[in-house]
C-alpha cells in the first residue's frame, strides 16, 4: 500500500511545484465560480439549482471534465516516457500496478481538490444564512470525483500509449469526448435512419431498443445525473464508476508491461 501512496505523493508534489497545476486550478476555479454566480443570479437565488449547475448540471463542468484529466495525465506517463524517467520508475522496487494506481490517485485527488470549490460555495451560502442540503451536496461531490476518476483513468491509458504528451492529451480528449457524446450521437443517427432501417430489417425495433439500452448503460450523463447529482447513492452507479476506471487502469498496466517486454 505504501508504494502507490509514495508515487501519489511524488506526483502531487510535482503538480503543485510546477506552474501547470496552479494555473489549471486558478483558471478552473475562476470559471467555475463565475458559472455558479451567474446561475445563482439567474435562478433568483435558488441555491440547489446553482450548486447542481456548478457540479454536473452545467456545460462547464463537463468541459472541464474532458479537458483537465487529459492535460493532467499527459505528463504522468507520456512525458516521463519521453524524458526517460519512466524507466527509472519502472525499475524501482514497486510494481507497475502500484505506479499506475499512485499516478491515478494523484490526478484524481487533484480533481477532487478542484471540485472542493463547490462545497466551499456551499459553506459561503451557509454563512450567508442559506444552508444547502449538505448531505446531498457531498453525495454530488463524491459523484463528481468518481466521474473525474473515470476520465483520469482514460487519460492515463492514453498517456501510456505514446511518448508524445500532446498526442496523449489529444487522444485522451477524443476518447473522453467520444465516451460522453457517443450515446447522443448514435441516438441522433439512429433517429435519422430509423425509417430507412425499419424497411430493411424486420426486427429493427428490437435491435433499436437493444442498441439504445446498451448506449444508455454507457451514458455518463445519465449515470451521474440520476444518482449522485440529485443526492442519491445507488449501488449500481457506484459499480459503474468503480469498474470502468479499474478496467482502464488494468489496460494501462498491461500497456506498460508490453513496453517493458519491448525493451
Amino acid at each position: 500500500m505504501r508504494g502507490p501512496w509514495n508515487i501519489c505523493r511524488r506526483e502531487l508534489s510535482g503538480l503543485f511545484l510546477t506552474p501547470l497545476g496552479w494555473m489549471l486550478l486558478v483558471v478552473a476555479l475562476f470559471t467555475s465560480g463565475f458559472l455558479f454566480y451567474a446561475q445563482l443570479v439567474d435562478a433568483s437565488g435558488n441555491v440547489r439549482y446553482a450548486l447542481e449547475g456548478a457540479l454536473g448540471g452545467g456545460p462547464l463542468f463537463w468541459m472541464l471534465m474532458i479537458t483537465l484529466p487529459p492535460l493532467l495525465c499527459m505528463r504522468l506517463l507520456a512525458e516521463e516516457s519521453r524524458t526517460g524517467t519512466l524507466e527509472y520508475l519502472l525499475t524501482a522496487p514497486v510494481s507497475d500496478a502500484a505506479v499506475i494506481v499512485g499516478k491515478y490517485l494523484a490526478a484524481t485527488l487533484f480533481m477532487a481538490l478542484l471540485w472542493l470549490s463547490v462545497p466551499m460555495y456551499g459553506l459561503t451560502l451557509h454563512l450567508l444564512g442559506t444552508p444547502p442540503d449538505w448531505v446531498a451536496l457531498w453525495v454530488a461531490y463524491l459523484g463528481a470525483v468518481l466521474v473525474s476518476s473515470l476520465f483520469v483513468s482514460i487519460g492515463l491509458f492514453a498517456s501510456s500509449l505514446t511518448q508524445a504528451p500532446l498526442l496523449a492529451a489529444f487522444l485522451a480528449f477524443i476518447a473522453c469526448t467520444l465516451w460522453l457524446m457517443l450515446p447522443w450521437v448514435v441516438g441522433m443517427l439512429l433517429s435519422q435512419l430509423r425509417d430507412s432501417l425499419s424497411r430493411f430489417a424486420e426486427n429493427w425495433e428490437t435491435a433499436d431498443a437493444w442498441i439504445q439500452g446498451a448506449l444508455e448503460s454507457m451514458n455518463v450523463f445519465s449515470h451521474f445525473g440520476r444518482s449522485f447529482l440529485p443526492g442519491i447513492l445507488d449501488s449500481s452507479e457506484l459499480v459503474f464508476f468503480v469498474t470502468w476506471p479499474a478496467f482502464f487502469l488494468f489496460l494501462t498496466v498491461r500497456s506498460l508491461e508490453t513496453r517493458r517486454w519491448r525493451i
Binding site: V47, L128, T130
Partner: peptide
Amino acid sequence: RLLSIDKVPTLNRVV
C-alpha cells in the same frame, strides 16, 4: 432554499 438578493454581492466577492 433561496439566497436573499441583498447577499449576492458578498457571495460574488467570495466565489
